[in-house]
Amino acid sequence: MLRKMTCIECPKGCQLEINEEGGRVISLTGNQCEKGLAYGRQEIESPMRILTTTVLTEGLDLKLVPVRTDKPIPKARLLEAMALISGARLTHPVAVGEVVIKDLLCLGVDLIATRSVQ
């Protein structure tokens, strides 16, 4: 199957054309450098995203604490992660970088605070 996508590794934004079969890259054209190749392969084989969102707090000075995953997680599991996070409550103060949810969805990724709350 032929797939088209835009490389986002640099501002040139090359239009990649990828021939793919069963989640495996067979050929890739349109890139102007190696990064483009790696990007295209990653996007087809296992696209990953950093998730940023918020967690509700209880008894703290902000209603929501903004958070992000400390490493990218599979794109396909973003909504699943959101569902889990929307049920979470933070009840103790945290500083920027501290863990809010450990080992999110058993992916080996932590959800960390991006703002301090008291």
């Binding site: 950093i50 940023t52 969102t53 918020t54 903004p66 992000r68 920027v96 991006t114 703002r115 301090s116």
Partner: peptide
């Protein structure tokens, strides 16, 4: 910056990809 909770901040100044609140912090 406080409401820009997405990443994309600081790539030049701090050479790392931060969210808005982290950049502000």
């Amino acid at each position: 910056l406080n409401q820009c909770i997405h990443p994309g901040f600081g790539l030049h100044h701090f050479k790392t990809d931060l969210t808005g609140p982290e950049y502000a912090d």
